[in-house]
Design a binder for these strands. Sequence first.
DNA 1: TGAAAATAGTTGCATAAACAACTATATGGC
DNA 2: GCCATATAGTTGTTTATGCAACTATTTTCA
Lengths: 147, 147
Amino acid sequence: MANSHFKKGELYSVINAMAAAAVARRMQKNFRNAGLEITIEQWSILYHLWKEDGLSQQDLCNRTYRDKPSITRLIDNLENIKLVKRTAAKDDKRKNLIFLTDAAKELQQITIDLANQTMDEALIGIAKDEIETVKNVLQKVYDNLQS
Amino acid sequence: MANSHFKKGELYSVINAMAAAAVARRMQKNFRNAGLEITIEQWSILYHLWKEDGLSQQDLCNRTYRDKPSITRLIDNLENIKLVKRTAAKDDKRKNLIFLTDAAKELQQITIDLANQTMDEALIGIAKDEIETVKNVLQKVYDNLQS
DNA sequence: TGAAAATAGTTGCATAAACAACTATATGGC
DNA sequence: GCCATATAGTTGTTTATGCAACTATTTTCA
């Protein structure tokens, strides 16, 4: 009935967005309190470069689920604050390869600790299998909408 | 171990945000395809006014989990496209009460149908109890981070 | 009653996302 | 080799968020 329909829209419009935003705000706050001047969006780029340095912007699009202009501008900002450097790929002049600076390498351990601390705060009272369910459901939701 | 720690940060930085963004994009696309010129953020405000017209901006902050400046500007934009109207409250001059226009009232059924259609697309292959788990977990995450 | 604190809303500034339109390089088929 | 097409990245525009600082009312309570 009409009412149960309302509840469906709410799953997105309220619950999902609000939790993501709350975690983002807290992570940002924990970074700031530690004297770190990066945004969580910038951090999410560094995170993938710590796993594998020298990715192309397109690689970063795929791994962070962002579009190309978003990555262009995040890399612009990271380059301005000297955390990454663009380098043209030798085999394909269209490609920029993105490399971490030494300053960025130094941020890895502390920011990952802070991220984990944030998630510990966020996940109090939530069981491991519930977390698994959430991950699986949100992955399925994403896959359902890729077309 | 370091690796399981990595996975925790990922829960936010990738999975959660990406699914919320994917749903938002699809809902926006479905609105656009139907010739509707509103954003999903604007829609989420209308959604609460359809349930109860004449809410204050602070009420809308609480119900949509946004801060006051965000609501000020969303109401600005909705007022510009003539979907809501601010009216000063008689009993408390600090308060703006927000009222739907006739044009906004006409959008209710079609946009809620489109939102439900979007959620149907998003939730294919996901069981009811899994959806319940996601809602409960994300609510708990939000509550954990309110302090 | 009158000053301090709380509440409601606005504005400025920085960052980020979505989308469309654009440039430049690479690839594939004829 | 050449042209159409695909791929990688950039730019412009609009909308939205977060935070700090601000104004204007209302409430509290000494």
